[in-house]
């Protein structure tokens, strides 16, 4: 049996909104490590990895490891029926082919339950070896989203280059070119407004803006985003979910033929 009570129910709504366009179906796994998901998009270019640790739940009960296959669009439809301030509880009985989402208003004057059919999904998990990244950039997530959106009106791909100068986002399209450079900036009022660049080696990688724009849907989950980049390796784009875990996207680069 499984019962997970999340006081910040709005967080689960945001998680679904951030991944439902990238991935159709996924297994949610529940274990002592936490409530997690790993799923690849149908073109096998991006993987999303989510972890919500048990400490973040008011009640985290699963007496054995459970994997629940869900259609993410259907799950998002159900979660849209929850208020942003609602407490969300997930419940599943052993051997059941359904999961129940219970929504409680903060004042407890409205309680709703929605039962969703589970599905069998054969998914293999990817192993991500530990990598030493050439550069790690931490910046405000809204700034990163803005840059990806702006550049996608000019071109289809973004070149992300980290040098001593800073981190450069470049694109090229039929109408012209665009370059945005963000320099390290730690002289800010709030730590989440800082841009911090750790560079071991200069690195330059090209990615499809369609994917970058898709993963910036996770922006409401975190004030900051971390880009981990190494030549010839997928980028890791991480949004930390305060005190609970993270949502990470692994995105394969494009190469010049």
């Amino acid at each position: 049996m499984l019962e997970l009570r999340l006081v910040q129910g709005g967080l689960l709504k945001k998680v679904l909104e951030s991944i439902k366009d990238l991935v159709n179906d996924a297994n949610f796994d529940c274990s002592a490590t936490g409530f997690s998901l790993q799923a690849m998009d149908s073109s096998q270019v991006a993987v999303v990895a989510l972890l919500l640790r048990p400490e973040g739940f008011e009640r985290y009960w699963c007496d054995r490891n459970i994997s629940m296959g869900m259609n993410l669009n259907n799950m998002a439809k159900m979660l849209k029926c929850a208020g942003n301030d609602d407490i969300i509880t997930l419940k599943a009985e052993d051997g059941s082919d359904t999961v129940t989402f219970m929504f409680e208003s903060p004042t407890q004057d409205k309680i709703a339950d929605f039962e969703m059919k589970l599905m069998d999904i054969n998914s293999e998990r990817l192993g991500f070896p530990e990598a030493d990244y050439h550069a790690i950039v931490r910046m405000p997530s809204s700034e990163f989203a803005r840059i990806c959106k702006d550049l996608s009106s000019i071109g289809n791909t973004v070149v992300i280059s980290v040098t001593k100068e800073g981190v450069r986002f470049s694109t090229r399209g039929d109408i012209g070119t665009a370059n945005v450079v963000c320099r390290q900036n730690t002289a800010v009022d709030k730590p989440e407004e800082a841009t911090i660049i750790e560079m071991n080696e200069p690195v330059s990688l090209t990615f499809g803006l369609r994917y970058m724009n898709s993963l910036t849907k996770a922006t409401p989950l975190s004030n900051t985003v971390t880009l981990s980049l190494s030549s010839g390796l997928p980028a890791v784009v991480e949004y930390r979910i305060a005190e609970m875990g993270y949502i990470r996207f692994y995105l394969a680069p494009k190469i010049e033929e």
Binding site: S43, R125, L126, G127, P129, T206, A252, P253, I255
Partner: peptide
């Protein structure tokens, strides 16, 4: 010409 790489080129399935 740019080619989009797939994640399978980098990672192994468990």
């Amino acid at each position: 010409l740019q080619t989009q790489l797939r994640l399978e080129a980098f990672y192994t399935f468990n």
